[in-house]
Amino acid sequence: MAGLMTPNSLDELAACLAIGNVRVVAGGTDWFVRDVESFGEEDTLIDLSGVAELRGVTLQGGGLRIGAGETMTSLAGSPLVRTHAACLAEAAEHVGSWQIRNRATLGGNLAGGSPAADTPPALMALDATAEILSLRGTRSCSVEGIVAQGRAALAPDEVLVAFTIPLPEGRISAFGKVGSRKEVSIARLNLAASLRRSGGSLSNARVVVGTLGSAGRLCPGAGEILIGSLDLEERRRAFCSALVAVVEAAIPGRSTLPYKRSAILALGEDVFDALMRTSDEGRGRS
């Protein structure tokens, strides 16, 4: 008979991890649908939902710290996330259905390893770092690094505890997604981008395209164009062209290429427009 444990704190969680052959479940949105298949009679399931330290959204030491157990609903509704990590709030707002958003966690969305996940590109665009707990202690790793390693990034006994997003002055961000429906749709393509504006100038662009074989692909070329010196219309066009080039390079020969090459144009336009709009609003306020 498989075991079942319900730790209420990180300390208790650490003790649970020590028994070996463990699997963890947080929101559980993938557990019975996918992960339970590989769960054996000798394994133990650890329910993370009672661990208080996995929750919370706080400003800490110049960064935004988000517990890995925060749900999509709480991220989408959090004023702190909306203000400091807009693209993450937008991504969370369009994950699955309301029922799913009430369960799905930020940690689970990354740990699940799906190339179509919506929050990893946003976390990458925001240059987030993950805090990971295991018997071997706590380590940190960039979300970019975790995404690059795919599902192998986390050992079975490793638990995502929190994410920290640095908060440089004047950063704005935006997220876009193309699925088969407006709501409740797995992304065919998603795009997150952030940049800094100070005075009239833009800098530090990070542009991430998701669902091209991995949950996030950094596009430095598109980022350079975003903050470059072209006039607005030309910049918009060049930004979209750069994204098309990213898609073509990422999935050459795939049957989905013709579609994604076209759809990325829409995402490029929408995200570009959202960033420039936010940028203008920012200038208007200051």
């Binding site: 949105t29 019975f32 259905s97 799913i100």
Partner: peptide
Amino acid sequence: EPVCSCLVPAVQ
């Protein structure tokens, strides 16, 4: 909060 009870582990 609405949830899909087919996904939630009973222990939760």
